[in-house]
């Protein structure tokens, strides 16, 4: 059941580095929407601000980062205006997070079972059944032999196992919104697919919404219904998966898609990754942040393009979005242009 009012709605989220006067925006004003039962992807290169966005939503930023503007509405209630205590009551049950770093995100001195039980106990549950629930959860995320693994310490598990445990911890309290920050990076493809499948199955069971953060367009195509493409702290394109893959309207999205290895096209020597590096938060150019790397750059790009609708359910932040969306997606056409443009 997909209702019309979004479960989670992020408006104008801005998160900055530094707690004093001279702030640098890491997230420059992000809008997102998640509806019940939906999986929405947030994609972008390393350093584009995906994790900071996720942590801002869950209010789990470290001391150096601070959300300075925006709203995070969960069922219409603004999380950013809640007290720390009020926020704590929502964490785990209403909004849960799978963190990016499986090696450091589990406490090294506590058993897996203990760490899992903390999440299970967020809902009323008989003390005697906590262990059984924990074993069942471990099993549901594909951990073999959960009866003995439950008493192990994190260092006794492989990276893939730990990531499964992280997923189990996040879904244990049946959250309504799950933020999964690259839940499968650094795992082999088979394990990756397995964990994502299991995670999706768990979330589908209780009709929750997932914000899936990744930089893998293959993962997006397989698991998400909607995509937000993030570049240098802002959303540059937003669409349902089909039109994004069929008609990418932002040059950066084209670059991401072209950098995917594809079987249905002739091999091209090398994969065309996007030339150049994304700007750091300190050296972000005026106007469109992508212009130094862009093959379609025009003079107007020194003004920042707004995120505008170019078709039903498809928005892009590029002055030439409509024109670019109508071009065939062909790495031969724009990859050399990209190279010469940089």
């Amino acid at each position: 059941m997909v209702t019309d009012t979004p479960l989670l709605r992020v408006e104008g989220l801005r998160t900055a580095l530094g707690s004093d006067g001279n702030n640098f925006d890491v997230v420059t004003g992000v809008d997102l929407e998640l509806r019940e039962g939906e999986t929405v992807a947030l994609v972008g290169e390393s350093g584009s601000g995906k994790s900071v966005t996720a942590l801002s939503i869950a209010r789990l930023l470290g001391p150096r980062l601070r959300t300075v503007a925006g709203k995070v509405l969960l069922n219409g209630k603004d999380l950013l205006s809640l007290s720390e205590k009020g926020m704590r009551q929502l964490r785990g049950r209403d909004i849960a997070v799978v963190f990016q770093e499986p090696m450091t995100s589990l406490n090294p001195v506590l058993r897996i079972g203990t760490q899992l039980a903390e999440s299970i106990r967020r809902n009323p549950v008989a003390a005697s059944s906590v262990r059984d629930r924990a074993i069942a959860l471990l099993k549901s995320v594909g951990i073999t032999n959960p009866e003995s693994r439950i008493d192990m310490y994190p260092h006794q598990l492989s990276g893939g196992m730990r990531q499964r445990v992280m997923v189990a911890i996040a879904v244990a309290a049946r959250p309504r919104v799950l933020i999964a920050d690259e839940p499968t990076t650094a795992l082999d493809v088979t394990t990756q697919a397995q964990i994502l499948d299991l995670m999706q199955a768990r979330m589908a069971e209780f009709g929750a919404a997932t914000l899936l953060i990744t930089h893998d367009m293959g993962v997006v195509a397989r698991y998400a219904q909607k995509v937000n493409v993030m570049y240098s702290g802002g959303i540059v394109e937003r669409s349902d998966v089909h039109s994004l893959f069929a008609k990418p309207a932002h040059p950066y999205t084209r670059g991401l898609l072209n950098s995917m290895p594809r079987l249905d096209r002739p091999r091209m020597g090398r994969l065309s990754a996007i030339e150049g590096l994304p700007p750091s938060v300190l050296t972000r150019p005026k106007g469109c942040p992508f212009q130094p790397r862009c093959a379609f750059r025009i003079d107007k790009c020194s003004q920042k393009p707004p995120l505008e609708s170019i078709a039903a359910g498809h928005e892009a932040a590029c002055w030439r979005a409509r024109e670019i969306a109508s071009l065939p997606l062909d790495d031969q056409a724009d990859a050399p242009a990209m190279r010469s443009g940089s």
Partner: peptide
């Protein structure tokens, strides 16, 4: 307190004293 696993503990919504006693003091 600056370790990733404390952030995980906070993300579960457990009480601050539990984070201090169980997750920090032992380490």
């Amino acid at each position: 307190l600056s370790q990733d696993y404390i952030r995980t503990a906070r993300s579960k919504g457990i009480a601050p004293w539990l984070i201090l006693v169980r997750h920090c003091l032992r380490n």
